[in-house]
Design a protein around this nucleic acid. Structure first.
Ligand SMILES: [Zn+2]
Ligand SMILES: [Zn+2]
Ligand SMILES: [Zn+2]
Ligand SMILES: [Zn+2]
Lengths: 158, 158
DNA sequence: TATTGATGTGTTATACTATACGGTATATCG
DNA sequence: CGATATACCGTATAGTATAACACATCAATA
């Protein structure tokens, strides 16, 4: 359950490393990391906060990479489908994956004060959701696990 | 972690019992279970599936209880705020609470085939979300836990 | 080479979800 | 009663997401 936590970190390498990892993964899986897709991933990586599709679209539009909603949504669909980004249901927003490697089931910790989001992970078939599912014979395909509250810094400030 | 599971059950009493429990709870807490609020609760109780706000609004409109979105959203805000119903983030939809008693933290099992939703519950500060939060000093205020997949019947059929 | 199919892009239009705001009515309580 | 809070309604608008169609590219194949 490694995670960047809410601490500051060397952000310079986040974008470059993230894109490089995605590019490598796409090559290995014969996926096309096109211009728009890569740019959306970079945009998501440049903040560690979740971004709405229209917020991303604003950036694309300013750069002449596309001006209509489907442009952003198509790129986001690609990124989320293949695990390079995740959708945060609670926020109707998207965030770059911070565990770019094996398939994984993310857990998000969302600070309602500073809006930062941290991704943790653990197997969803274990734990309380898995138990609930097992009791009723339910077959889990996807788990949404998002906690809203205060990050350490904001909790201290309060 | 009691739950109705996905089995059939005596549905006749679901609506009456649910409304009665809510009425009693409102009386004890000096909350007003007004006409629209009660009707929305009944509508939610009459199916065990989650319903969108506009779907509920359609029913209200047909009954002359209100025709504009805020009517439905206001009632739903009341019901969710006080624990008589829950919002399903994954579906942008609402469902009547099936644990109308103590405060609780629901877990939803959503069947993507028949669209039924079952509510289970367990303490969110325990389990994997709690563990993830604790590791980073995050203070949980609300947890979203929703699993999407196949209910026993639909899994058998497939 | 010509054809076909799969994939990506661009655009228009529309559907779906949710809230801000202004004004009125009704409940509650000193 | 008057004061305050709560609930109500409707209009308008904001925010989120997808359907559908046209065009381009590229690879496989006939
Ligand atoms: Zn991830
Ligand atoms: Zn914070
Ligand atoms: Zn409940
Ligand atoms: Zn089912």
């Amino acid at each position: 359950m490694t995670q960047q936590a809410f601490q500051a970190h060397d952000h310079k390498s986040c974008i470059a490393d993230g894109v490089a990892a995605a590019a490598q993964s796409c090559a290995a899986r014969k996926l096309q990391l096109t211009k728009v897709r890569q740019r959306v991933l970079e945009i998501l990586l440049s903040d560690h906060k979740a971004m709405g599709a229209y917020e991303i679209l604003d950036v694309l539009r300013a750069e002449g990479l596309g001006s209509q909603p489907p442009v952003a949504y198509r790129a986001l669909e690609f990124l989320t489908k293949h695990g390079f980004a995740h959708r945060i249901e609670r926020l109707n927003a998207f965030i770059a994956c911070s565990h770019l490697n094996d398939p994984h089931a993310p857990i998000f910790l969302i600070c309602r004060s500073c809006n930062r989001v941290v991704e943790a992970e653990s197997d969803p078939t274990k734990g309380e959701i898995g138990r609930a599912a097992q009791q009723s014979g339910f077959v889990i395909e996807r788990a949404v696990r998002e906690a809203e509250g205060l990050c350490p810094e904001c909790a201290d400030a309060a």
